[in-house]
């Protein structure tokens, strides 16, 4: 068996607000193989987003170990984690997080600009992404000129620009109507079918059922891990 893409052992994350401590993650153990399709579900405040942020190297656990691609990334400094995010991880957010002054094309190009990729190469890759996501006619529109569904497609194209092996989506359909949401999910599933690992946080049981593996969280713990 190949080593898992992600291996968490005894991960904890605490937040202190005033003199009260919130245990957002209580000693999680979790293994995820390359290419899996996982839905994380659970009540509000159960720690789903916190787990996703730890997996995406945006947040650091207070204790425990995180192996990504066989490498221990728990103690990496900020810059090393930034580089790992750039190379390996694509994020999709509930509120899209597009840069309002930039066009759809430029938003998609942004990760490659940050990575210092050659402009000619960038342009070629952006054109392909625009076409794949049906955004070519909207390429020069700014986010405020796009519908929610189009915005989320731009965000997904952006997440895919650096061809990450891990896609993390925190309630990607939360701001979309049912129909548009299903389109977006279909898009993400297509990426997973092409080999990427897909982890989606969702409140929608129907969407959750489409995943190949469901993690149920309650109060900072995974109470159910089913396929």
């Amino acid at each position: 068996m190949p080593p898992p893409l992600i291996h968490l052992s005894a991960i904890t994350r605490r937040f202190t607000v005033g003199d009260e401590t919130v245990q957002a993650l209580r000693g999680l153990d979790l293994s995820i193989a390359q290419g899996e399709y996982i839905a994380i579900m659970g009540p509000s405040g159960s720690g789903k987003s916190t787990l996703l942020n730890v997996l995406g190297l945006l947040d650091q656990p207070d204790s425990g170990h995180y192996l990504l691609d066989g490498r221990d990334v728990t103690g990496l400094d900020d810059d090393a984690r930034a580089l790992a995010r750039r190379e390996k991880i694509g994020f999709v957010f509930q509120s899209f997080h597009l840069v309002p002054r930039l066009s759809a094309r430029e938003n998609i190009e942004l990760p490659m600009v940050l990575a210092g990729i050659d402009p000619a190469e960038r342009t070629a890759r952006v054109e392909v992404l625009l076409r794949d996501y049906g955004l070519t006619p909207r390429a020069d529109h700014r986010p405020n000129q796009l519908s929610g569904g189009q915005c989320q497609r731009v965000a997904i194209a952006r997440a895919m620009a650096m061809r990450p092996s891990l896609i993390l989506a925190d309630e990607p359909t939360g701001n979309l109507d049912r129909h548009t949401g299903q389109d977006v999910i279909a898009l993400l599933e297509g990426l997973q079918a092409a080999g990427a690992t897909l982890i989606i946080v969702t409140h929608d049981p129907e969407l959750g059922r489409r995943a190949h593996r469901q993690l149920h969280m309650v109060d900072g713990e995974i109470v159910q891990d089913g396929r």
């Binding site: 945006l58 900020d78 930034a82 580089l83 995010r85 190379e87 990760p111 940050l114 650096m162």
Partner: peptide
């Protein structure tokens, strides 16, 4: 703030 957060999520280092 949110733009800076996004840039960081996309892999921008502190220096960048």
């Amino acid at each position: 703030r949110s733009e800076i957060g996004l840039l960081k999520a996309l892999g921008a280092t502190a220096a960048e």
